[in-house]
């Protein structure tokens, strides 16, 4: 019998790792969105929240863990895509979806397109926001980073709106297939569970995409809230 570590490179294990990392990243997105919605409350609330995060000693290990999950998800997915290309070297002249019970969708066929879009977007987003200009705000007597000002300044510019809207839509499209697919990859399938997972996965994708999309649209067209 092959040593057990070989298991981790099988097609089944690859999908399990992609699923675990992907669902963890979805969990992060939910927390991230909840924090971002404080922009609707106003600058003091948003800056107070960001100050709690920035000044927390646990934030660096958490960020590193998040980065590790992100890298794992990307590397495994690229390896998988490579194997899949090799598995069908000669393409069909004509392909159609069989319909019926198939879950094939625009989202499921473009995972390898929306994935890299999200990858580049996250890098640009972290560079502009996390490593962007450090404005200072007064937070009840303590000095804190004025992240609110940076967000408003950035998203009021048409060029950033043109970047954020399609990229956030790509996140939604990726999750439209990704969430329910992750459950399948983990073997979580059942006559009662699966119909619920399929609906909940799409609902979560729409909720996350709509939540994130609302912010740049609101700030650009309505100015946001100071």
């Amino acid at each position: 019998m092959a040593p057990r570590r070989q298991y981790l490179f099988s097609t089944v294990a690859t999908k399990v790792l992609i699923a675990i990392a992907g669902l963890s990243l979805v969990g992060f997105l939910c927390v991230h969105l909840a924090g971002n919605l404080l922009l609707y409350v106003g600058a003091p609330a948003f800056n107070a929240y960001s100050h709690v995060l920035i000044s927390n000693p646990f934030i660096v290990p958490l960020e590193l863990a998040l980065l590790a999950l992100f890298v794992l998800h990307v590397l495994e997915a690229v390896t998988m895509w490579w194997t899949d290309r090799a598995a069908r070297p000669i393409a069909y002249q004509m392909t159609r979806s069989a319909g019926g019970r198939s879950r094939k969708s625009l989202a499921s066929t473009t995972m390898i397109v929306t994935g890299p879009i999200v990858f580049v977007f996250v890098a640009v987003h972290v560079a502009t926001m996390k490593y962007g200009p450090w404005y200072v705000a007064d937070l009840h007597g303590t000095e804190a980073r004025d992240l609110h000002r940076l967000v408003l300044e950035t998203l009021r510019r048409p060029v950033w709106l043109a970047v954020y809207l399609p990229c956030l839509a790509a996140v939604g499209l990726h999750l439209w297939h990704g969430v329910s697919s992750a459950f399948e990859s983990l073997g979580l399938h059942g006559p009662r569970l699966t119909p619920k997972v399929l609906v909940a996965g799409k609902a979560l994708a729409v909720a996350i995409a709509a939540g994130f999309l609302s912010i740049p649209i609101w700030i650009f067209f309505f100015g946001g809230r100071s």
């Binding site: 097609t11 999908k15 499921s108 697919s181």
Partner: peptide
């Protein structure tokens, strides 16, 4: 053979 993408074309 390639990886399963959970599309369900096979089942269809």
């Amino acid at each position: 053979f390639g990886n399963c993408s959970n599309e369900g074309e096979c089942e269809a």
